[in-house]
Design a protein around this nucleic acid. Structure first.
Lengths: 111, 111
DNA sequence: CAGGTATATACACAGTTAAGTATATACAGG
DNA sequence: CCTGTATATACTTAACTGTGTATATACCTG
């Protein structure tokens, strides 16, 4: 599943991203902070890397991972149409759209 | 998988939410607009309903679904720490945190 | 070079789940 | 009532995906 949404559906991956949100980390640091087996960390990081959520820098035997924002940006963008449901500015337009924008599918009108 | 993230990992469910973002719809309307088998629509709607993404109003034999924002709000909130990566205001603080906030490498066990 | 550290990968397995098909329930209208 | 419409649910199946275990690769230090 290559969708950004599918990637962040996994709790451990979100935990890793949360950790990287504040600063870059090596695999070992993630492993210890999250108390998660090393192969698991590496595998999740691979998924995140291939999906563009993180990128790695090689530093001797270490790989230091950091956030790469593109896919998260995409998720953020997807949320846009829904923000009106909680973004305070509850004006008439919203209710209006909600009631009117129905497409009567080729039959008589109802209600 | 009860997490809001798991729920929206499914493309058809996102499509349904997108449709409902602009206005409420009956099951049949969704079925036709998305050209998706009715049992599939009903099943996805159940998942969405149980997870709090939508709520339904009964209207004769129809069930009219509409967005219920809470879980999406939660997703939106989760994104907050990452917004600094693309929210324009790229100031020194960010890079600073990114470099400095590393665990003091060794010198005794942590905690 | 040996030995240790850091990370990646291969493989088998188990749990989850979306899709398809069939059927059940509820209501409306003649 | 009977029929058609609208929606939900049961069950099976195939595909995926995360985990654990074991191993491979790379690099550093003495």
């Amino acid at each position: 599943m290559e969708s950004a949404f599918g990637i962040i559906a996994e709790p451990n991956r979100r935990a890793i991203l949360n950790l990287l949100a504040s600063s870059e980390r090596s695999v070992g640091e993630i492993e210890r902070k999250l108390r998660m087996p090393q192969p698991s960390v590496s595998k999740h990081l691979r998924v995140l890397r291939q999906a563009g959520f993180v990128e790695a820098r090689v530093e001797a035997q270490r790989r230091v991972y950091r956030i790469s924002p593109e896919p998260l940006k995409e998720v953020d963008a997807w949320l846009a149409p829904f923000r009106r449901y909680w973004s305070g500015h509850v004006d008439a337009l919203e209710r209006h759209l909600d009631r009117m924008e129905r497409v009567p599918p080729r039959k008589g009108k109802k209600r």
